Simulated assay, not measured.
Amino acid sequence: MTPDAEFGYELLVCRYAELAWHPNEGPRPAIVSRQLGTAERRWDTVVIEVDPAAFAARRAFGERTIDSDLLHVVRNAPAEWAWYRDALPHPGYPWRYVRQAVHRAAGRDLIEKRRRNNRIQLRRKRPYPEWVQRIVAIENKPDLDRSAADRLADQLVHDVETGLADEAWLATETTGDRVEPALLREMPVEAGILATDFADGVDADAAEVAWHPSDLAPAEHERRASDTETLRLEIAERAYGKGWRSFHDTMRPDCRHFELRGEGRALVPHCAAKAKSPTARECSGSCPEFSPEPPQWRTKGWPIEGGPGKGLELVLDRRRDRARDRIADDESE
């Protein structure tokens, strides 16, 4: 069954997207993340459609996010040694921050660095690939009532008008009947509607398209502004490093009541004390039911730095890595 909180529904939508994207046009290689966006707009679920060959090349840069300062260095690093101020375009902020980014990039083995004539020089180790093909934004609302429709309509109109994403969707839980037409009329016609049914958990057939989205990408002869393209890449990089299973970063898996429960082909957090899927706000050290793992749990077959909670984190991290591996494997076949 669908978890109680909208947070739990969000995780199920993420897992569905990982299994079955694109719901309208057939399988596409993609990575999925959640709660990403800009200062003006945060999306519930983000799907980054990728080119498998370029994605495999991106993986050579490591598993961590390459942040905006590092992207400026890595994308513009020259093939031959050059002073960093000659090699990189002016960033629009002081050069000392670029110098710090050069040191960080070299420390992560993203570029090569040396000092000649008291100047810092750099060169690339490999070209940074154009691995992002399309960005899809999904708003999740399992219970679509009138007030929810009004709020979501404004958000989706913003997504359509800014054109930061290539598609905008609303995911909502089906009730067995058609979604009320009056509610759908509140939505911009360019946004797709995904009707989900997670009563038996998540699988690739747990949703269907109730309304087809429009393509929000620029026409073939047009291009997005360069700052918009940079912002899209920054969002994609955060999605790559974070994934959608990173909820354990803001929850307390070290609590003895924290569990992972199967919902079909998805794993979602569950609180044994409250018998529900908690939100990140509920699952915190201030929760009255919070009970830390006893120290002896952490020395009986578990890593010394953690107990069963650390094991649950490893499970989630491995599943994220397997999702990445499948995309790279598609390229090698």
Rank of each mutant, 00 (worst) to 15 (best):
K310A: 12
I31D: 01
V74N: 07
A39G: 08
E237I: 14
P91N: 13
R99G: 02
R108E: 13
T45S: 11
A77Y: 10
R223I: 08
A17K: 00
L71G: 04
T279D: 02
K274L: 11
A168Y: 00
D166I: 00
E229V: 13
W297G: 01
P89T: 12
P52Y: 15
I327P: 02
R85L: 14
Q296D: 05
A53G: 13
A5I: 01
M187F: 04
P3K: 09
G241T: 09
A217D: 02
D177K: 15
R146G: 02
I327V: 15
R115W: 06
I304F: 09
R134A: 06
A137W: 05
I120N: 07
R34C: 10
E259M: 11
D69A: 13
W95F: 08
R265C: 07
W169V: 03
E161L: 00
T279C: 09
Y16A: 02
L12H: 03
R59T: 05
E333I: 14
E263V: 10
L144A: 08
D215C: 04
D227T: 12
S284W: 07
W83D: 14
R115I: 15
L164P: 05
I48K: 03
K242P: 09
A165V: 06
P29R: 07
P218V: 06
A106I: 11
E282L: 11
A20T: 01
V189K: 06
R252M: 10
